[in-house]
């Protein structure tokens, strides 16, 4: 109790003020662009060309959103993105967890060799062009499965899962085996329920990666508009805007009610909204995951 009444030193207070200033600047720089995008997305198109919209729309309209939601390519992209996120996350989680389970069995004959086989893949890969040709030969290019199959096992995620499973007591496995349970039953009934937190972590990492990826859509499915993704469509929208804003006349002469910047802001908001709404609730999962995966203690 007494410590509270001790007068804090001058240095102490100066530091507090400096920290406060730093954090205010940090939060402003982080949040402002997002809020600004939100404000522009609700603003009237022609009005937005004048600039000067900061935290709140000047001429409120929902029209940008109705336009964006009516754009066929964005709707297709959204469907594909949701599908790849859901399917990709489940398959990757299952495959990585199963492999991690095998590698983490202390009695498994080839656990060292199998770990080594996968760790190598973290450091050596064929590179963009051989991989592109492989997918072409396997007929993965021009299909939905190019988003799912190649990324099913990732060494880093597998190692995070393995580290967690190694921390579980061996006696669980032994007693289940005495009861006659096979390895798959142990995996499914005993290990997996205990691994829920780390499963959530890996699922989150995979899902965010799936949601945000655009390069695979551009590289492998450029011609297949039915397999386009949300981020790739956003990128196309962005580059068209960039070219247009290069020549100032285009913006001035535009007579349409909605100019690209408001549309793009609306599309951006649609793309980032699901993740922004979800991640605050998943914090503890990625914090544990990073601690396990980053530095082995």
């Amino acid at each position: 109790m007494n410590t509270k009444h001790i007068k804090r030193s001058l240095e102490d207070r100066i530091i507090s003020v400096l920290i406060a200033i730093f954090m205010i600047v940090f939060i402003t720089v982080t949040l402002y662009p997002v809020i600004n995008t939100l404000a522009i997305s609700f603003n009237d198109g022609i009005d937005a060309v004048r600039g000067g919209i900061y935290l709140w729309p000047r001429k409120f309209t929902m029209k940008n959103y109705t336009t964006v939601l009516a754009m066929q390519n964005l709707v297709t992209g959204a469907k594909i993105t949701v599908a790849r996120t859901v399917i990709g996350t489940f398959t990757a989680l299952f495959a990585n967890a199963l492999l991690a389970y095998v590698v983490s069995r202390k009695r498994f004959l080839f656990k060292a060799q199998l770990s080594f086989f996968w760790v190598i893949t973290m450091y050596v890969n064929g590179g963009m062009i051989p991989i592109f040709m492989l997918y072409k030969n396997l007929h993965l290019t021009g299909s939905f499965w190019v988003y799912i199959v190649p990324g099913m096992i990732g060494a880093w995620n597998m190692l995070v899962l393995r580290t967690y499973m190694l921390g579980l007591p061996d006696s669980l496995e032994e007693s289940a085996q005495l009861d006659g349970a096979g390895y798959l039953t142990i995996f499914w009934k005993i290990i997996s329920p205990l691994c829920k937190p780390v499963y959530a972590t890996v699922a989150l990492f995979v899902a965010v990666g799936q949601w945000n990826s655009w390069f695979d859509a551009m590289l492998y499915n450029r011609m297949k508009t039915e397999y386009t993704t949300l981020q790739y469509e956003l990128m196309k929208l962005l580059s068209s805007v960039m070219q247009q804003s290069g020549s100032a006349d285009t913006a001035k002469n535009s007579t349409a009610a909605i100019t690209p910047i408001t549309i793009r802001s609306a599309a951006t908001v649609v793309t980032m909204l699901p993740i922004i709404c979800l991640y605050p609730f998943l914090q503890r999962y990625f914090v544990t995951g990073l601690t396990i995966g980053g530095v082995k203690e």
């Binding site: 492999l99 095998v102 080839f110 996968w118 890969n125 064929g126 991989i131 096992i153 798959l184």
Partner: peptide, 29 residues
């Protein structure tokens, strides 16, 4: 006794061989 583990390992090794190791042969190009 470890049949199940070996089968799973084998499948992942085949998968890893195709998707991670096979592209290395492309280096010949």
């Amino acid at each position: 006794r470890q049949k199940t583990l070996l089968i799973i390992s084998f499948i992942t090794v085949v998968y890893g061989f195709i998707f991670c190791y096979w592209p290395l042969t492309g280096w010949i190009m």
